[in-house]
Computed example of a mutant assay.
Amino acid sequence: MTGLFENLTNPALLFFILGVVASQIKNDLSIPENSSKFISIYLLLSIGFKGGNELSHSDAGGEIYWSLLLGIFLAAVVPVFTYFILRRKLNTENSGAVAAAYGSVSAVTFVTAISFLEFKTATFGGHMIAVMALMEAPAIVVGIMLINTFRDSKDKDDKISFGGVLKHSLNNASVYLIIGSLIIGYLASDQQAEGIKPFTTDIFKGFLSVFLLDMGIRSGRHLGGIKENSWFLLLFGIFIPFVNGTAALLLASLITESVGNILLFAILGASASYIAVPAAMKNAVPKANPGIYLPMALGITFPVNVIIGIPFYFYLIEKIL
């Protein structure tokens, strides 16, 4: 277990914890909103470009195709079984919205996992960026399908437009930026990639640390909302990520032997969306309460994954392999 605790010394993770503590002790520490937006754009651009550049040096073999299929499978299946667990305590709309959030992914958690791999000098395939991007929309569509199928009969005529939902999902700013950066990185030559390396690589960890400090402050502010709603939701937000993450880890180990790729699959399975899904549900399912699915994803599951999940999965992968 010593290795597991050593993994927690990643400075980026410690900055996140620092932010959570700041919010809990009512410290006035904050990151300006415009700065936070700029850093999030930078992180997505950087990770997309680097992933695309790595992908350009990879052979399009069976592992890439299986990885893409596994990502879509996870995004479609996780919302289904989580929906029926949530229906024990929540109504149809809230169950579908939360299920969609847990079937989708968190780009920030994914980026943090990549930073962790770099800290451990472990490599990963550039195609994992494409896997992450592909997992956004299917979970939202499945969540909407579940709501349409199981909602009360009096609301059956109030159908939700799949075309609008799909368009909104695919046109999400985060998905657009990371896919666009992936394509640009794929097309760039080695000389061109080396030319902007100081921007895409050298300053990456510093910006990530500031961003995670900000996310720690935001996550800490949402903790109270979960406590007020239900212990059931609190426990769900803590334990379901480990169920999903471990299942994704085991499935990924069947198609790849790369420690980095398996870890990224585990964190994709474990993470919950607090950007794309809330934005989609706000328009598509106004009856769903954002005071439930947003605090669960951001206030509970995000810090659990960043502080405990990433080092835990890495430790587990090392033991398995």
Results as ranks from 00 to 15, higher is better:
K156C: 06
I129A: 14
T123E: 14
E136C: 05
A137F: 09
N148T: 00
I147P: 03
I147S: 07
P138D: 13
I140V: 11
S169E: 04
V165Q: 00
Y176K: 08
M145G: 08
A130M: 12
A130S: 14
A133W: 08
I144Q: 05
N171Y: 03
G125S: 14
D152A: 11
D158V: 00
K156D: 05
L146V: 04
N171V: 00
G163Q: 02
M128H: 15
S161W: 04
S169H: 03
A133G: 11
A139D: 13
V141S: 09
M128F: 09
G126S: 15
G163M: 03
S161I: 02
V141K: 14
A173I: 06
I129P: 12
I147Y: 07
M128K: 12
I160C: 04
T149H: 07
S153P: 06
P138M: 15
Y176S: 06
G143Y: 08
Y176F: 12
G163R: 04
I160N: 04
M128L: 14
L134K: 13
R151E: 02
L146K: 08
F162A: 01
G143S: 09
H127Y: 15
H168S: 07
P138C: 11
V165W: 00
A173F: 07
K154W: 13
V141N: 09
H127A: 09
I160G: 01
M128C: 13
A173S: 15
D157N: 06
G163P: 02
S174R: 07
I140C: 06
K154V: 08
M135P: 12
D157I: 00
N148Q: 12
L146N: 07
T149K: 07
K156P: 03
S174C: 10
P138A: 12
D155V: 01
M128V: 11
T123C: 11
V131W: 15
D155W: 02
L146A: 03
S174F: 08
A130E: 08
A133Q: 10
V141E: 10
G163T: 01
A133Y: 08
G143H: 12
D152H: 11
T123M: 15
T149G: 03
L134G: 14
K167G: 01
T123W: 10
S174N: 09
F150Q: 02
S153T: 10
L166I: 07
N171W: 01
I140W: 07
S169Q: 02
E136L: 11
M128Y: 14
K167P: 00
K167S: 00
V131M: 13
D158I: 01
A137V: 06
G163I: 00
V131K: 12
K159S: 08
G143D: 07
H127N: 14
P138Y: 15
M128T: 10
K159V: 01
A173L: 09
L166K: 06
I144M: 06
A130G: 12
A139I: 10
F162N: 01
V141I: 13
V131D: 14
G164A: 05
N171R: 02
I129T: 14
D157T: 00
L134H: 15
K159G: 05
L146I: 02
V141G: 07
F150H: 11
M135A: 11
A173E: 09
K156M: 06
F124H: 10
G164I: 01
K156R: 14
F150N: 05
N171C: 04
K167M: 02
S174A: 10
S161V: 00
H168D: 07
F162R: 02
